[in-house]
């Protein structure tokens, strides 16, 4: 399970972020409270991604697969971070 979480961590965080945003947009409206919640969720997701990136960098490489998984995990986390920022932009830019 840990290996899968390393492999998919960034993308899972993107998914959690997206569906929370969608839930707020669908059921919570688009007022200031909703925007604040979206901002906080995005910051929290980015913080978790940063922590995971640091932990992944410190993790020892036991064999080829774990090195490969760590590379994929890091790339996924970076992609996830990009996705989180990209998904939050519509809220920041909306009038």
């Amino acid at each position: 399970m840990r290996s899968w979480l390393i492999l998919l961590g960034g993308l899972l965080l993107w998914a959690v972020h997206f569906f929370l945003l969608y839930g707020i947009g669908e059921f919570g409206g688009s007022g200031p409270a909703a925007r604040l919640a979206i901002g906080l969720i995005s910051i929290a997701c980015l913080a978790i991604i940063t922590i995971l990136l640091v932990r992944l960098a410190r993790q020892p490489r036991e064999d080829a697969l774990s090195g490969w998984g760590a590379y994929l995990g890091r790339a996924g986390l970076l992609l996830g971070a990009l996705g989180v920022v990209w998904q939050t932009l519509p809220v920041l830019l909306a009038q």
């Binding site: 969608y22 947009g25 688009s30 990209w86 998904q87 519509p90 809220v91």
Partner: peptide, 18 residues
């Protein structure tokens, strides 16, 4: 759909091309 929700889906639709 609400504009904010529309924005989320528009952003994701562009992102999936990456």
């Amino acid at each position: 759909m609400p504009p904010m929700t529309t924005g989320f889906f528009s952003a994701a639709s562009m992102a999936v091309s990456v």
